[in-house]
């Protein structure tokens, strides 16, 4: 158990370090003066010199990197070129929106996908299985933004059921409940489209695993013992298929974060991904680096959460044997 967690923690730290290093070096290999990637080029020479000292740009590269890592870990991202405000202040209001989008989309699509996959495996050749197979091939080949644009066109413009853009209405409605409902109303289409695109491939994967598991001898044994069909299905078959399902959850995570960036752009949500794009478009390098770092951090944290779930689901970890992956 302990060695598992040590391995996972080292893995997470390695990814974090890579993200920070990528941030550090990417913005330093760009053409031109290093200062221009950290300090607004419109600053006066004196101010630039001052910034050089503050950011330690006159020091050796390794020392700079250590300073950089410390600043990243304390969320001290500097000042945005575009808004002239501390970047963390701007990001802080956006992080919950991104988490809400990612979290709801992930939870709903994995729950729906798992349930459909299990149903499809139980009744081979039924309608559920056909739905699963078709929705799976759609989610593999249709670009997410295309599906979202079509949804936006028909469900927000032609039939104005959903809002066109943004995370909240302007003006913001009064009262906590109204504000909450307004927020959910704005989230429904973006999160719903992510679910629509995500559950299919998920369901196919679960179905394939379950079909394989249901053909094994211990299922036959469970049936022979006279357990009810749902108990065989969920307590025996699904339980033993759970660890690989969580593995695929892990593998799918980065792609879902990438999808959230595009989704936020399509629906103009007030999120980290949209901030990343706006910063890149506006050549606001410190802000772009910070947004990238936050997205990386979100991925790492969800990774660790999935690892925790894996540790619970796979009994081999508890007894200290290496999991078969």
């Amino acid at each position: 158990m302990r060695s598992y967690w040590i391995r996972r923690a080292i893995g997470a730290a390695a990814v974090l370090l890579l993200v920070i290093a990528a941030n550090f070096f990417l913005f330093r290999i760009m053409p031109g003066d290093v200062v221009s990637s950290i300090v607004d080029p419109r600053f006066s020479p004196e101010a630039k010199e001052r910034m050089r000292e503050v950011f330690g740009l006159d020091q050796p590269l390794l020392r700079q990197f250590v300073i950089y890592v410390r600043r990243m870990l304390t969320f001290d991202f500097g000042i945005s070129f575009l808004s002239q405000r501390p970047i963390w202040d701007e990001l802080r209001s956006r992080v919950p929106n991104t988490i809400a989008l990612l979290g709801s989309a992930l939870l709903i699509s994995s729950a729906l996908g798992t349930w459909l996959g299990v149903q499809a495996a139980r009744k081979r050749g039924g309608i559920t299985e056909k739905v699963v197979l078709i929705s799976g091939s759609i989610s593999f080949s249709f670009p997410s933004f295309f599906v979202q644009l079509v949804l936006l066109l028909f469900l927000a413009y032609t039939l104005p059921v959903f809002p066109l853009r943004g995370s909240v209405s302007i003006p913001v409605p009064q009262g906590a409940i109204d504000r909450m409902l307004d927020y959910i109303w704005h989230l429904l289409l973006p999160a719903g489209s992510l679910v629509l695109l995500g559950f299919g491939s998920w369901a196919i994967y679960v179905r394939n695993l379950m079909v394989k598991t249901l053909g094994e001898d211990f299922i036959l044994l469970a049936r022979a013992k006279g357990f009810s069909e749902s108990r065989v299905l969920w307590n025996h078959a699904f339980r033993s298929a759970l660890p690989p399902i969580l593995t695929i959850f892990l593998l799918a995570l980065p792609g879902i974060v990438s999808g959230a960036v595009i989704t936020e752009t399509v629906f103009s949500l007030h999120g980290v991904g949209k901030y990343l794009l706006d910063s890149i478009m506006g050549h606001d390098y410190p802000a772009a680096g910070a947004a990238f770092y936050i997205l990386g951090l979100l991925t790492i944290i969800s990774n660790l959460a999935a690892d925790a779930a894996y540790a619970i689901a796979d009994p081999r970890i508890k007894v200290g044997r290496r999991a078969g992956m």
């Binding site: 990814v15 974060v257 390098y285 990774n303």
Partner: peptide, 22 residues
Amino acid sequence: RTVDVLLSIPVLPILMVIVGIW
């Protein structure tokens, strides 16, 4: 290990940053 690490980072944000800079 490098492959594992690269596979666990969302690629699109990296691509966006690189395209933005390069």
